[in-house]
Design a protein around this nucleic acid. Sequence first.
DNA 1: GTCATCATGTAAGCCGTTACATGATTGC
DNA 2: GCAATCATGTAACGGCTTACATGATGAC
Lengths: 203, 203
Amino acid sequence: MIDLAVLGLLKGNELHGYELRKRLMELPGARAGAVSFGSLYPALNRLERAGLVKAVEAGVEAPRRAPSSGSLAGELAAFRARHNLSAPGGRSRKVYGITEPGSQQLLELLTEPQPDDDRTFALKVAFCRHLGPAERVALFERRRADVTARLTERRRHQGRDRLLDRYLRSLTERDNLALTHDLTWLDGLIAAERSAPSQETAS
Amino acid sequence: MIDLAVLGLLKGNELHGYELRKRLMELPGARAGAVSFGSLYPALNRLERAGLVKAVEAGVEAPRRAPSSGSLAGELAAFRARHNLSAPGGRSRKVYGITEPGSQQLLELLTEPQPDDDRTFALKVAFCRHLGPAERVALFERRRADVTARLTERRRHQGRDRLLDRYLRSLTERDNLALTHDLTWLDGLIAAERSAPSQETAS
DNA sequence: GTCATCATGTAAGCCGTTACATGATTGC
DNA sequence: GCAATCATGTAACGGCTTACATGATGAC
């Protein structure tokens, strides 16, 4: 989940951890991108060790390891820091970019056929522009099947609606509505995909 | 979460673990009650040790500990097994009921004011019949505030809609719709609560 | 000069899952 | 008799959170 989120965002943007999280939090879809720093930073380090992302324009690192009295590196850092100001390419923070293996891994994550939970699916949609039209449709169709299955499951179990109190009934109705809306939405996505000029955005 | 689910279901029904899970899985609301056996059974034991639930009609337990050759207990178990068939009060399974402290704990879990994630909120609604009207409205109002906050947050961040690709735009729209529908639903619940004959279902 | 925000990290722990082990009962 | 389902558990592990520690920078 967090790998998908990180790789998806880094594909196209070079970002440092803090900014990455800010963007993640802004992603739509039921808090899909919500992660804590406590899991983001270790994840970034892990992905870097795995070669899926790499630090770019790394700039000043480990100035505190410098035993020499002359704080050359420190001065440099301060100078750089005075001039960066948020534009992608800042200094003194660790800016990451995606690597080729990282891009491949992103595609694999987006393509894996196992059923997604809601948050993962939202993330996949958020980054599905990196897929080709066929894989995109496959993604939507798989989800469609999942939602349909849930709906029919629900209908199987709801015969005893009369036995439920009003709150459970209301909850059930809400659930059915939400699932139905999702189906409609997915159908729209699929239809659009099939009729659209099919602009490839392959890897 | 699992405590809420277990206590909520046991309030009113006496059930064994397997049946408990089956009912949990049937609860509406975005897979709200989905739990694995691997977490359910330990949870039941924990709740029992804490005195929040207790085994009732324990019936045949530990027949394998009986060293005597005469398999009296075994025979009895077999006899019972032939006749129980799913009706609450089965044998050879561990049937649990809620205790007074358990009921109190359930009320506390239903009343705690911290914001709920979607699944927890669904569970609270599923069992909110055990609350009084005032606490119920409070529950709904809190959720309403949460959803409203999410909506305005979203609106703050979506000025650059034009920058997003069609999939992110679609996802954002879907999200807005879902949140809006939820708001309407909550408003309906609140209105119904306020205008209803206010049937108390206190602890 | 002090406070909020930016920025990166570590450690402990929670809460749940999957996989495994075991055995009784039911239906064919 | 054999398979599917019912039924209860344990062990290992995974992923994420909270809380903590640290420090630079910017605004006033």
